[in-house]
């Protein structure tokens, strides 16, 4: 099944204005914005959609309190859409919506949508590192650090992470019914999952958790590279948003990360430079400790050489 990845995530919120400002400050572009909600797109058109939490058009979340109301995946062709519908109709309702998409539910209670992907292809070089002996270099006189005031935009909706009460059952649904592959696994926690039409290390990660945790841990968009992503993160912090973890780089998937609190009842991440794998990749397995999750974690310092403003005993405490 050629599922190419996430197309959009739909949230029900209690403050449309606050959530909209948050997403714009994150870097997404608002379209169709009103006091009832809106759609906020990355460069390729993948998006976060928000609506009022009491909007009757929203499907229910998996549990009360979970603000994610629908996860929409893109597929490459009508054949895949038909194959998904036929497969899921074996044991559950599949609705065909007026826009041509289909809607059903996974085995953990998350409402799913599937549509022909509307991703807009674009070509824009990602971050390039200059290295002695390298093959690809940045153009001479171009700068590695995004200059102040430069526009930084998320490129594409990357992945979503679910807390699920039965991770074995949840994984089986995505692998056996929708053709996802496990790329790597945290022992006793859950799998990183890749759909058949993507090379990304993961578009889904499942975390086995007690029923009262059922919901979303985080979601994230890909940025053009670590320098761009971390610059965007610092701008986000300066606007008053609350960082949780990062900036750093994961081990499984190699993606650079920076996590923030959000008005969606879960974390939001900024990520960059995730590994790509094909079917020849052999999944690794590791315990989900902090040491196995961050290969390094960066810290800003305000002063880096002695001079005016440095306390008598230095700035190294």
């Amino acid at each position: 099944m050629k599922i190419v990845g996430l197309e959009s995530l739909v949230f029900g919120v209690d403050d449309i204005g606050g959530a909209a400002r948050f997403l714009v400050d994150y870097g997404l572009t608002p379209v169709e914005l009103s006091d009832r909600g809106g759609r906020f797109e990355a460069m390729d058109g993948t998006a976060v959609v928000i609506a009022r939490q009491d909007d009757p058009a929203l499907p229910p979340g998996p549990v009360p309190g979970c603000r994610l109301r629908k996860t929409v995946m893109g597929v490459a062709d009508e054949a895949t859409l038909g194959a998904i519908a036929a497969e899921l109709r074996r044991d559950r309702e599949v609705r065909r919506l007026p826009d041509g998409s289909i809607e059903s539910i996974d085995d953990a209670g998350f409402v799913l949508g599937f549509q022909l992907t509307a991703r807009r292809p674009f070509v824009l070089a990602g971050e390039i590192s200059n290295a002695p002996g390298g093959v690809v270099f940045r153009p001479v006189n171009s700068l590695g650090v995004p200059p102040p005031g430069s526009v930084i935009r998320p490129r594409s909706l990357s992945h979503v992470v679910y807390f699920v009460p039965d991770v074995v059952k949840a994984e089986a649904f995505y692998v056996n019914r929708l053709g996802f592959r496990c790329t790597d696994r945290f022992t006793g926690t859950g799998p990183f999952l890749q759909p058949g039409g993507s090379l990304d290390h993961h578009t889904h990660f499942l975390i086995g958790a007690p029923p009262h945790m059922h919901g979303v841990e985080h979601f994230t968009f890909h940025f053009g590279g670590p320098s761009e992503m971390i610059t965007n993160g610092y701008r986000f912090v300066e606007k008053g948003y609350q960082a949780f973890w990062g900036p750093g780089r994961h081990i499984l998937g190699s993606n650079w990360f920076w996590y923030f609190n959000s008005p969606f009842g879960c974390h939001i991440e900024m990520d960059a430079d995730m590994d790509q794998h094909d079917a020849s990749w052999r999944p690794r397995e590791a315990t989900a400790s902090a040491d196995n999750s961050q290969t390094f974690l960066l810290k800003m310092r305000k002063k880096w050489y002695p001079g005016p403003g440095i306390p008598e005993n230095g700035d190294y405490a």
Binding site: D15, G18, K239, G240, Q242, F260, N261
Partner: peptide, 15 residues
Amino acid sequence: GAPMAWRRDAYLNAA
């Protein structure tokens, strides 16, 4: 130790 606000001073729901 998880910090709780989503934006500076924003610790409450909308209501």
